[in-house]
Amino acid sequence: MLVALAGIPVLIALAVRLTSRVPSGRGPAFLDRIAENGLFAAVTGLLVSIPLFLPLTVGVVAGDTIAGEAGLGTLKYLLAAPAGRVRLLLAKYVGAAVFCLSAVLAVALSGMAIGALLFPVRPVTLLSGDTVSVGEAMVRVLLIAGYITVSLLGMAAVGLFLSTLTDVPVGAMAATIVVAIVSQVLDNLPQLEWLHPWLLSHYWLGFADLLRQPPSFDNFASNAWLQLGYIAVFGALAYGRFTTKDVLS
């Protein structure tokens, strides 16, 4: 999955390279900037992956955490080892969180690499009009990667909880991905504006502030609080469910 994720910016960069001219203002944001500065391959890759591809992979990993072990029948042996139910749950969540980070880094790093390989890399003009050095720009890309990783942690907690409900991993994976998609759909309905700040995916694309000088961390903080809330609620639900669950698989 990490390879597939890393392939996204490569695909984008190759497409841009081969068509050589991208009409400005069409396609995903920053697409037209890739040819002029390779670092934008990473940003574009991340942007394109956020709505579907990253949630998809995180949903697969988070949904598989407990249900996958139950489906294989290894859950009972882990618990009889004894792994301890709380300890196992924590280990599984940490594993999912590490995957979130690796997934985002896979896109970001491969984006920067392919961008540097196919296009010139030069100082970047930020959204605020300031220009920063290549090194500083790379730090900004990593900051965005951090932002997106945090964005996915709440979803991983939802997946963990759903995974404790079933012995069929595919069910938990699908349900987790559905939650992410529904959240994004609801976030696009203006009639539900009151609900928007509470939606899992509300801040997913809100990292543009990190591309200003000086970077604004307001969204970063709001996003972190929201994700923390999701982790607390669904973590507690997962704990409540898993510590009392009869393991019959």
């Binding site: 294989l72 029948g73 290894t74 009972k76 042996y77 882990l78 009889a80 080892a81 004894p82 792994a83």
Partner: peptide
């Protein structure tokens, strides 16, 4: 308990290693 269950993609020794680490 009710039949053995292991990770099919790991070797026998690696499976035992994983279960032992869990303890």
């Amino acid at each position: 308990v009710e039949g053995p269950a292991f990770y099919p993609f790991l070797s026998g020794a690696a499976n035992l290693h994983r279960l032992d680490t869990a303890d």
